[in-house]
Structure formats: C-alpha cells, structure tokens
C-alpha cells in the first residue's frame, strides 16, 4: 500500500496544482483587466450555462472516440435529436418526458445507425460519420420544412426549466461525476478503453468488442443527447444547418476532447473535459470583455491556444505522434 501512496504523491499531483494555479490566476487577472466583469455573478452563471453543451458533447465523444470510432456526425446528431425532442415536447404535447426522452433516445438511435455503418458494415468510421452527417442534416432540414411555415426554426417555448442556471450547474457537476464514474469506475468504461486499445487482446479476455463499442456509443450518445436537451432548453432552439455545417458545431467540443486527452497524464479525462469546456467557453467570453472582435480575432486566439496547450502537453510525450 505504501507503493500506492507514493504514487499519489507523484508529479501528477504537482502538475494538477500548477494547472489549477495557472487557470485561477488567469481568471483573477482577467477579472481585474475586464473591469471586474469576468467573475461577476451574472457572468459566472453565463459561463457555466454556456459550458454545459460543449462539456456534454465532449464527454459523449470521449466515450465514442475512445472505443476507436472517429464519428464526425455528432454535431448533426445533436441538432436532429434536439429538434425531435422539441417536436415531441411541444407539438405532440408530451412535455418534459417527450423533450428529455425524445432527445436522448433519438440521439442514441441515430448514433447506433452510425455505429451500424462503422461496425457491422465495416465502413471506416470517418466515412460513416461524414455520410451520416450528410443524411442527418438533410433529414433535419427536410423534416422541419415539412412541419413549419414562416420560419425554419422549431422553437421551444415551454418546458424550459432545464435551461435555468441551477439546473445547468447541477448538470455540469453531475455530468462530470457520472462521466468519471462510468469511464474510470465501471467495467464498461474499462472495456471501452480496452477495445479501443486492442480489440484482439480484449476479445481474448472475454470482452465482446462489438457489444462494447455499441454500449460505448449508447453511453456517449446519451451524454450528448442530454447536452442537447440542456442546450435547447437554454437557447430555446437548435438551428438546423446543412452542407456539413454541423461540423463547426463540434469544433469546440472536439478541441476540448483533444485537449483533455493530451493532458490525460495529469488530469482525469472527465475532469479535463469539464475544465476544457469552461476554458474554451471563457476564452470567447474573456476576449469579448476585453473588446477583442468576435468572429475573427477570437477564433484566431482560440486556435493559437489549442495548439499551445498541445505543445505544453507534448513536452513529455514520447513515442509515435500521428
């Protein structure tokens, strides 16, 4: 046991302290620079609210990507399933159950389609994801246009309690806890990583690779489905896009997943996703507070920050980096 204790006092803990200190001082410094706006209660609420969607999508993608599936249809999936949820809740009068279950089940079902293409039909997951993104985007716009007139947006007018601050905060904390629990403390979490690491060995150890990938996708889709529920509750709409525009919906979550992955040595990935989401959200918020133009400089800086973080985490990387 002494061995385990010694491990607990390893550089990992030190690195965690450093990262926490750097982030904290960044926020405090920016708070002063922004004229005491950054950490004002209203803005903190906003930051947390805005972080929920990227965090849940990132957790979801984490489960799917870890099992070896690179799925780029997640953004299209979120948009379609959120609109399904709104349709059920509001237009078919199913209320909250319709919204929550509808969205989550739709997300899970759609993700299973992608997984079917990738695992059963053995189409490389990149292609399966892109192909399904095309299909889902098209299904969203075609479906909605059949339903709506005078607008192309399906509005969630009622049932928006989940979009309020306390619910969003609770979601963020619970989400991190559940993600951590599943990925680190359950057999399925371990199996997902095992299958992603070596389908052959894990198969020999009695792990059914196909079942694990499917289960991982169910968990992942449930996560981003829940994220979509919160997003649509907060923003009251999920605007459809076309022409693979849904990819830009997941750029920020993708950056978060990659960041948390590259800092996995220091921070638990689930927590890393939480920190990363809040950070990426805050970057835009901070820069706006500093008067940095949105749509141009903010994006340039985000890109620079992602690469810089990658470089910092890459310092101790050994071996092959693709």
């Amino acid at each position: 046991m002494a061995n385990i204790k010694a491990l607990r006092q390893n550089p990992r803990v030190r690195a965690q302290f450093i990262i926490a200190a750097v982030l904290l001082s960044l926020f405090v410094a920016m708070h002063f620079v922004s004229g005491f706006k950054l950490l004002s209660p209203g803005n903190v609420k906003l930051l947390i609210t805005q972080s929920v969607f990227p965090a849940f999508v990132s957790w979801g993608m984490m489960f799917i990507f870890t099992s070896g599936i690179v799925d780029l249809s997640v953004g299209a999936n979120c948009i379609l399933s959120a609109n399904v949820g709104v349709l059920l809740a509001q237009y078919l009068g199913l209320g909250y159950p319709g919204l929550i279950l509808g969205t989550v089940l739709a997300a899970v079902a759609l993700e299973q389609l992608t997984i079917f293409c990738a695992v059963t039909l053995k189409i490389p997951s990149w292609i399966a994801g892109l192909g399904m993104a095309l299909v889902m985007e098209s299904a969203t716009t075609v479906g909605l246009s059949a339903y709506l007139s005078g607008t192309n947006i399906l509005w969630l007018d009622e049932y928006r309690a989940l979009g309020t601050f306390p619910a969003m905060l609770a979601a963020l904390i619970l989400g991190a806890a559940v993600s951590m629990l599943i990925s680190d403390r359950t057999a399925i979490g371990c199996n997902i990583r095992a299958v992603g690491g070596s389908p052959h060995v894990s198969g020999a150890m009695g792990i059914d690779a196909k079942r694990t990938v499917i289960l991982g996708a169910v968990i992942g889709a449930a996560f981003f489905g829940i994220g979509s529920v919160f997003q649509v509750s907060y923003a009251s709409k999920f605007i459809p896009v076309a022409g693979l525009g849904s990819l830009s919906t997941i750029f920020n979550p993708l950056a978060v997943v990659l960041l948390s992955g590259s800092f996995a040595r220091y921070i638990n990935t689930s927590v890393g996703v939480l920190v990363g989401s809040v950070l990426v959200t805050s970057i835009f918020n901070m820069l706006t507070l500093l008067g940095v133009p949105s749509g141009t400089w903010q994006q340039i800086l985000l890109g620079a920050i992602v690469v810089t973080c990658g470089m910092i985490s890459g310092v101790h990387t050994k071996g092959v980096v693709k």
Partner: peptide, 24 residues
Amino acid sequence: QELGVIGGLTAAQNLFLGKMKQFS
C-alpha cells in the same frame, strides 16, 4: 505472444480485464 497488455489501461485494469465484475 498474441495476448499482450493494453497500453491505454493501467496495470491493475489490465490484470483484471474482463473480470471487473468481481470488484463491482
């Protein structure tokens, strides 16, 4: 030779891979 260990998992997880149920 065919059954190596999985790099992404900790040693403890590798040891009991597929047998997690007994600790769950």
